[in-house]
């Protein structure tokens, strides 16, 4: 089942959209972080856990599972900070390991960034780059909102009932394939 966008007449008024230009900017920033730190692995998801990008050594990593866990981890850390009155923007969670250190940071209000670095990379240096990259990612995500009029908008090109039926059928297909 694959229908296409007929026209782009409606504007997305809820939720978060990642546009092609933003995606390219994210890719560039993650690549920079990977080489500049240097990091083993960088991973970007949204705050609901949806995977956006991964760079570096991640062939053996289940990225979908990782997205949900990283988002949950950051959300829990933010809530802990709120409960203890220590909440600030761009807080970083650091997990020190024997071989690898892992940073998890918010990147604006919509994104979460995970960076893994070897233990011999100075923590202060890595933390500084992670924080900078997180801020720049957040700016890319939020900055484009102001130019949203030039961005593609969302329409399904179907009437309400038809679209619901399409989702119904898609779920039936999913169920019936086993």
């Amino acid at each position: 089942m694959d229908t296409h966008l007929n026209q782009e007449t409606y504007r997305l008024r809820c939720g978060v959209a990642v546009y092609a230009e933003q995606h390219k900017a994210f890719e560039q920033l993650l690549t920079e972080a990977l080489t500049q730190i240097p990091a083993n692995f960088v991973f970007l998801a949204d705050v609901a856990g949806q995977v956006i990008l991964a760079k570096g050594e991640h062939k053996a990593v289940n990225l979908v599972m990782l997205g949900s866990l990283v988002a949950g981890d950051l959300a829990a850390s933010q809530e802990i900070a709120r409960l203890t009155s220590q909440f600030q923007d761009y807080q970083i969670v650091l997990r020190e390991g024997a071989n690898v250190n892992t940073f998890i940071t918010e990147a604006g209000q919509y994104l979460v960034l995970l960076v893994q670095v070897d233990h011999d990379i100075p923590l202060g240096w890595a933390r500084m780059i992670v924080k900078q990259v997180g801020q720049r990612l957040g700016q890319v995500m939020e900055g484009t909102e102001t130019a949203v009029g030039q961005q593609p908008t969302l329409t399904f090109g179907h009437s309400d009932s038809n679209l619901s039926e399409l989702f119904d059928e898609a779920l039936d297909d999913l169920w019936g394939e086993t």
Binding site: G49, V64, G72, F156, H158, L163, D173
Partner: peptide, 21 residues
């Protein structure tokens, strides 16, 4: 303890792939 999570991927609708978390 915290949550369970499962993601479903539907067939394309209106040129987009819906993923339900």
């Amino acid at each position: 303890l915290y949550f369970d999570f499962l993601q479903l991927e539907l067939g394309k609708i209106s040129g987009l792939t819906p993923q339900i978390q």
